[in-house]
């Protein structure tokens, strides 16, 4: 009887471990991207909690995709200006990033911990694609992986023109924060 219980226990552990090892692609459809603009006149921030992101844990390939219209501001007027005048979300409805975690090999997805890695790739906003490199932290807790990163973008690099009248209200460089809990796997 005791042996049977031990065998079942061992099989359960092995099954759990194999599930952890075999998940090559982890993804979420509810990640978060936020941006923050700070000027002496005004602080502006917005959140998007409908971010799709996938990481291939073997190759390090990573991608993000967001509907621009899902960025949420505190004030409706800011949201309207952001969508209609600056990002033109009717015309360029999605923003995306496709890249590579070059040092993915140093992340052991079977061992809990925080791993600092570097992500490089192409960021497409407002129909313009530019290369971006950013440090990223991958945190492994059990069978869960969370990713976070922070980097800066300049609206002018993506042909986003800010009218003169509000130019002093919007920073030349915008801080972008990414947080994703990769809660699903393939």
């Amino acid at each position: 009887m005791t042996n049977t219980i031990h065998t079942i226990g061992l099989l359960t552990v092995l099954l759990f471990m194999s599930a952890r090892v075999s998940a090559q692609k982890i993804y979420t459809k509810n990640g978060r991207i936020a941006f923050y603009s700070k000027t002496p006149l005004e602080d502006i921030s917005a959140d998007n909690n409908q971010v799709m992101s996938v990481i291939n844990t073997q190759t390090g390939e990573v991608q993000f995709s967001v509907l621009v219209k899902n960025f949420r501001f505190k004030k409706a007027l800011m949201e309207e200006h952001f969508n209609d005048s600056y990002l033109e979300s009717g015309k360029y409805s999605k923003a995306s990033f496709k890249g590579l975690i070059k040092d993915i090999a140093k992340v052991n997805f079977k061992v809990d911990g925080s791993y600092l890695v570097s992500v490089s790739g192409d960021l497409t906003i407002h129909g313009i694609t530019k290369p971006v490199t950013a440090p990223c932290t991958l945190t492994i807790t059990g069978d869960k992986t969370a990713g976070s990163a922070k980097f800066f973008v300049r609206p002018t690099d993506y042909n986003i023109s800010i009218p003169k009248v509000v130019r002093d209200n919007i920073a030349e460089t915008i801080e972008v924060t990414v947080n994703c809990n990769y809660d699903q796997q393939l």
Binding site: M52, V54, L67, R72, S96
Partner: peptide, 20 residues
């Protein structure tokens, strides 16, 4: 309704339709 997001057909991840 904020529309249909992006999936990855190669990876077999279908897109969701979002309601915010």
């Amino acid at each position: 309704c904020s529309g249909m997001g992006e999936g990855d057909l190669d990876l077999g991840i279908p897109a969701d339709v979002y309601l915010v």
